[in-house]
Design a protein around this nucleic acid. Structure first.
Lengths: 125, 125
DNA sequence: ATCAGAATTTAGAATGATTTTAAAAAAGGG
DNA sequence: CCCTTTTTTAAAATCATTCTAAATTCTGAT
């Protein structure tokens, strides 16, 4: 565990978002100006293989990284455009029941008007 | 609707797979040798915006294109590595019930041992 | 602490996918 | 047909990511 790897892991864990390699690189440089972009990529791949984090990919955007490798639902709001996690306990079991076979893991992105935007809208109209 | 666009749409519709732009380009050149790769990209984007096809993206692979824009489940088999469609009628409704709000569309990739591989395995042991 | 070997970091070059450019060609409506 | 708009083409440009090779840092055994 090098200083660089520890920093990168911490930055992802602290992030409430789903940062790209470039975004992690920018934050990392604030604390360790000499760090190389290749180091960020190396470590993101390494951490993902170890199961510390998860690489996710969405159309029309660079790969993003998730602070946990535990599968969960991603909401993409058609109104505010935000990408957020949604509590997903029990969803894998539900999915297995529906499909009729065992699921190793899943990636689910839901496009919707997110509950937050939906609430805003109703109260302001 | 140009000849090029019609060809590209037909090739995707005829494909049982989820081809990449490069794969579509290779097939297209067999019927129209002078076609440019940029034309393939232009039309894939155009067709996706029109809702004729859907762009999908998976980690570690170029973007792929799906013959329909109707959401459905993708199975990625951990054994054979194949990416296949899975019948998904009623799944959106199930998802909405589970989430508690309306879903515009979704992208779901399930990692598993696919039923085909699972069956093979049992009969040969 | 010290050494050797393995793993990691770095900067920059290389690769691969996709988009942009500008000019030529084709489509489509009146 | 003619005009206008859209599309196509080839090449260059861009963007994300990986590779390279040399220098550095880690690790674990002495």
């Amino acid at each position: 565990m090098t200083r660089q790897r520890a920093l990168i892991l911490r930055l992802i864990r602290e992030s409430g978002e789903h940062p790209t390699a470039e975004e992690i690189y920018r934050k990392a440089k604030e604390e360790m100006p000499g760090i190389a972009l290749a180091t960020v990529y190396n470590n993101l791949n390494h951490l993902a293989q170890e199961g510390e984090i998860r690489k996710i990919s969405f159309c029309g955007s660079s790969d993003r990284y998730d602070k946990t490798s535990v599968p969960h639902i991603h909401l993409i709001c058609d109104r505010c455009g935000r990408l957020r996690d949604w509590p997903s306990e029990g969803f894998a079991a539900e999915l297995e029941r529906w499909l009729g076979f065992a699921v190793e893991s899943y990636e689910l992105a839901v496009h919707c008007i997110c509950p937050a935007c939906s609430a805003e809208n109703h109260s302001s109209n």
